[in-house]
Design a protein around this nucleic acid. Structure first.
Lengths: 201, 201
DNA sequence: CTAGCCATGTAATCCGTTACATGATTGG
DNA sequence: CCAATCATGTAACGGATTACATGGCTAG
């Protein structure tokens, strides 16, 4: 028998996890992802709604329709005991290594094909993005500490925010270094040209 | 007219980029990705071969069959001038922000559902992975500096390796902090239990 | 002989986003 | 009246991996 196929199913457990925090509708889950998990996770309706249905089919969640006068209909989902069990089992498994793909590093590695200006712009834009990310992370963090109602998951959310901060700050430092490297490369090239390009050092 | 659809096509330009460095066969490209770009990129044959064909169709590459006695047949690809042009144009465009997904942060954010032990193991395993990654990055770096033949792209490759180092080191520091947080949380919980769980100070 | 590498390629499948369709309510 | 928000869902598409099929050569 070949080794059973490795499936990712991260979205499935993200949804199950949100059910376990008491979120009840697909719409609310989408908003939660956008507003609170945006720095390390994303989901689309095209994933959320089918998954909710599937979880009900498998007995990991239940669904009740709610009709309210003056408001649109909603489907209210709740996690079941077996849902909690499967979530805990997944949490205890070591995460699959995810193949990293970084478009900016791919571009940088081919930097010799474009001007030093183009290359530096690439990095400067990235640095700016990191700065914006840091501001965004701080917004979430203060929103998290602000309203007295301490959520039981709050300490864990803060840890994920710390991660975001740590990474972005490392990226900023790297951007600075890299810009310096690029400038040095550019002046070296100019030197070569001036000296006639025949020297060997 | 709706805004023209945003396509990723990172793989396409990764292949075009490898053609521009002189790699000639799909097989060689796969090996190169595994051995040299593994820390920030991945490709599978299922991408590479169809893309090579497509590039030839579009006039960005040419292909010649090579039959050698005693060796398997190969298709040798080369980049054309218009291929180089399109590559340069892509390099000058700002990279699309890629939605990040971190399974480990997702798990950590739900840490309250499992034991502190389980949570700490998650982070310790991750720390170990980062250490291995660092060793791997150093291997590539020394392979890069070792054989005298300085590739013209070498300085750029070193910059991507620096990035890997910077990130992994930041991750290691974060792992240390996070383990401390987790231990503190665990002792707090124990305290609660001892004191009867009713205290508020 | 057989394991492993060279070398090419395709089909199935999975994963995920985007765009669309629908419709009620609320606030300006 | 219009825009925004709440709310659900699906179809089409794009992107990527996995598994499979093929086959010759080389070294042990």
């Amino acid at each position: 028998m070949p080794p059973p196929k490795r499936r990712r199913r991260g979205s499935r457990y993200a949804v199950l996890g949100m059910l376990s925090m008491g979120l009840k509708t697909g719409y609310a889950m989408k908003k939660h992802v956008e507003g609170n998990l945006g720095h390390y996770w994303s989901e689309s309706y095209g994933q959320i709604y089918p998954i909710l249905r599937q979880l009900v089919d498998e007995g990991l969640a239940t669904c009740t329709e709610e009709r309210r006068k003056g408001k649109p209909m909603r489907n209210l989902y709740s996690i079941t005991p077996s849902g909690r069990k499967e979530l805990r089992e997944w949490l205890a498994m070591p995460p699959e290594p995810q193949p990293q793909r970084s478009e900016i590093l791919l571009k940088l590695s081919l930097g010799n094909r474009v001007s030093s200006e183009t290359c530096q712009k690439l990095i400067r834009d990235y640095r700016q993005q990191c700065e914006q990310d840091l501001a965004y992370l701080d917004d979430i963090a203060s929103a998290l500490r602000g309203p007295g109602a301490q959520h039981r998951d709050q300490p864990y959310w803060l840890m994920t925010l710390h991660h975001g901060r740590a990474i972005r700050e490392a990226e900023l430092a790297w951007c600075g270094q890299t810009l310096a490297h690029l400038r040095r490369l550019a002046t070296q090239k100019k030197q070569w040209k001036k000296e006639g390009g025949a020297s060997d050092g």
